[in-house]
Design a protein around this nucleic acid. Structure first.
Lengths: 112, 112
DNA sequence: CAAACATATGAACACATATTCATTTGTTTG
DNA sequence: CAAACAAATGAATATGTGTTCATATGTTTG
């Protein structure tokens, strides 16, 4: 089920556009995007992310801090481990839309 | 009307994830995002973009080259001017979803 | 409390890239 | 064809940032 989208009229201020760009930029790094994908459907611990993606624990932690600050993911502690999961369903929607864009047939007009 | 999304099963390869990240990164710059927004609904010329956004013609052109290469926008020449417009409706969807994410209520669990 | 495990943080560095300036290419019209 | 306008390109630079290494903080268990 697809969640509702919002009109773009919210993007009047420079600050709003800046906040939006920040989110896209966060998803624009391969490591971070893989981390997001790994935590998209179910909570996963930092160490499991690091192992699964073959990234250092430190790097994963650094990225998760940025993602959590932007509320792309949220954290939950379970004993010694900390689990991260995508914050809301919109994150998945954004990714799915972008994948759909990639699959779109090319209809360039002045591309030569 | 919302276009169809695609499943994320396409993201198996590293190359697919990399391509996806490239697109997000392109939208993660304030100037580029503003350019995308300016050309979202109707074709607009390079000079009009530059004037409207108060960016240099050169800068706009540089960014448009990247956006066109990634098929985020497509170009069409009309006389001396070149008009750019968002390549497909998925671009708008992605933005709308991200705006919706920003408007999402905060439900952090371990945020303190 | 000490030891072991899991995560977070800080500094430093290598690398990418957004922007500017100068120039070139392309298009229309006298 | 020359002049004027519009857009694209290239080089140079300043700034941002992804990654690593070392270390600190937090948590459980003996």
């Amino acid at each position: 089920m697809k969640p509702e989208r919002r009109p773009l009229s919210t993007l009047g201020t420079e600050e709003a556009v800046s906040q939006l760009a920040d989110l896209f930029r966060l998803m624009g790094d391969t490591s971070r995007l893989r981390i997001i994908l790994a935590s998209l459907h179910e909570p996963i611990s930092v160490s499991d992310i690091a192992e699964k993606l073959e990234l250092s624990q430190s790097l994963v932690s650094h990225h998760l801090r940025l993602l959590r600050a932007a509320r792309v993911v949220r954290s939950e502690r379970r004993g010694k481990k900390v689990f991260y999961v995508a914050a809301d369903e919109h994150i998945q929607c954004v990714i799915e839309d972008m994948v759909a864009h990639i699959g779109e047939p090319d209809q360039a007009e002045g591309d030569d």
